[in-house]
Every structure is written in C-alpha cells, then in structure tokens.
Simulated scan of single mutants.
Amino acid sequence: MFNAERTHPEPTVVFVPGLRDHVAEHWQTLLADKLDRTRTVPPLEHDRLSLPARVAALDRVITGVTGPVVLVAHSAGVIITAHWARRHDRPVAGALLATPPDLDVPLPDGYPTPEELARNGWLPVPRERLPFPSIVAASRNDPLAGFDTVAGLARDWGSRLVDAGAVGHLNPASGYGPWPAAEDLLATLLPARAVR
C-alpha cells in the first residue's frame, strides 16, 4: 500500500516548554495551534525539577514521532534540549531555541537556586556544539539572562543568533502572547506548507 507520509513526511514540531510547562496564552501554545503536526512535552507530575526526568520526557515524545522532528524550546526548555542532545542521537531537522536562562547565577525570587538546579542535574549547562541546525533568539532585557551570556551559548552550540530585541523573557508576563517572529524563524527550519 502506498504511504504518502513515508515518501514525503511532514516534520513534526515538538514543543519543549520551560519550568512553567503548559501556559494557555504563551506564544508556544498559540504557535502550536497554527501548525498541522505538533507534539508538546507534557508536564511532569513528580520530580518537576529533575533534569533527567525532563530529558526522559522529551525523549519519549521524540521517540513517538514518525518522520522528521523540529524542536521549539523556550526558557528552561532550551537547557533541557541541550542536555537531551548530549545524551541522545536521534535525528533532529532543526531547533528554535528562545531565551534560555542563565542558570549559573541566582535567578529572581520564585525560581530555583543554582544549588537546587545543580542537585537536580541542570548544571553544568552543556556547551557542546548541537548536532542539528539551530536558531537562538536572545532578548535585550531578559531578567533571566544577559544578552551576551545567551550569545555565548549560541556560539558554543553552533547556533545562529537572532537579536529578538527588548522582549523580556518572551512570556506572558513580558507581554507575549503571540510572538509573530516565531513563525518567520520556524519557517527557515520547516517547509512552508507546514504552517497554515
């Protein structure tokens, strides 16, 4: 029987949220609603701060996808993606990595401390070149990471750095909601027909 998906597979976009997991008004959620083939790493019920559990959850989602995968990660999801890439060799067609946090310095109140992150496997943040094409979007006024720090991560990962401007942490608390630039950046990693 002829299987069109096998001969011309559409990529599946896998969304990797940060520590806040699914947020209804987040640009990732809104973008996922516009795409034909998506999966989102589900929230963890237990061990929410465990990096190994987060990496395993991402790997389960990717393993369940037939055909090419493009990753769209935000905040701590970017760090999860970097750790996943270091441990696994499943093929990824590309990744959009938005506003990774600087986990080596204390984050604002309400976020885990560097000591908690280290105990749970987040540190050190991998600096090896990623084995797939990637774009890192950096904010000029992110309260969770300086622009130069994020630029350094992009350089080490072999990613194309995009200056996203003064977008805060690119989350609803910063006024995003929709982030139209995400579609344009993703279009450089996806065939045009995947976005409707």
Rank of each mutant, 00 (worst) to 15 (best):
A24E: 15
A24T: 15
E25I: 12
H26D: 13
H26Y: 05
H26R: 07
H26A: 11
T29S: 15
L30M: 08
A32W: 08
A32P: 14
D33S: 12
D33M: 14
D33Y: 09
D36H: 04
D36P: 00
T38P: 07
R39H: 08
R39A: 04
R39W: 06
T40A: 14
T40I: 10
T40W: 12
V41W: 04
V41H: 04
V41E: 02
P42E: 13
P43M: 07
P43V: 06
P43S: 13
L44Q: 05
L44F: 12
L44Y: 10
D47S: 13
D47G: 09
D47C: 05
R48T: 01
R48E: 11
R48Q: 14
L49R: 02
L49I: 04
S50N: 12
S50C: 09
S50D: 11
L51C: 09
P52H: 09
P52Y: 09
P52G: 10
A53M: 03
R54Q: 10
R54F: 02
V55S: 03
V55Y: 05
A57D: 03
L58V: 10
L58Y: 06
L58P: 00
D59E: 05
D59C: 01
R60I: 12
R60A: 15
V61E: 12
V61D: 06
I62G: 03
T63F: 15
V65F: 07
T66I: 01
T66D: 13
T66F: 02
P68L: 02
V69W: 04
V69K: 06
V70R: 01
L71W: 02
V72L: 09
A73E: 05
A73Y: 07
H74A: 00
S75R: 00
S75F: 03
A76L: 08
A76I: 01
G77H: 06
G77T: 02
G77S: 08
G77V: 03
V78L: 00
V78D: 00
V78N: 01
I79C: 05
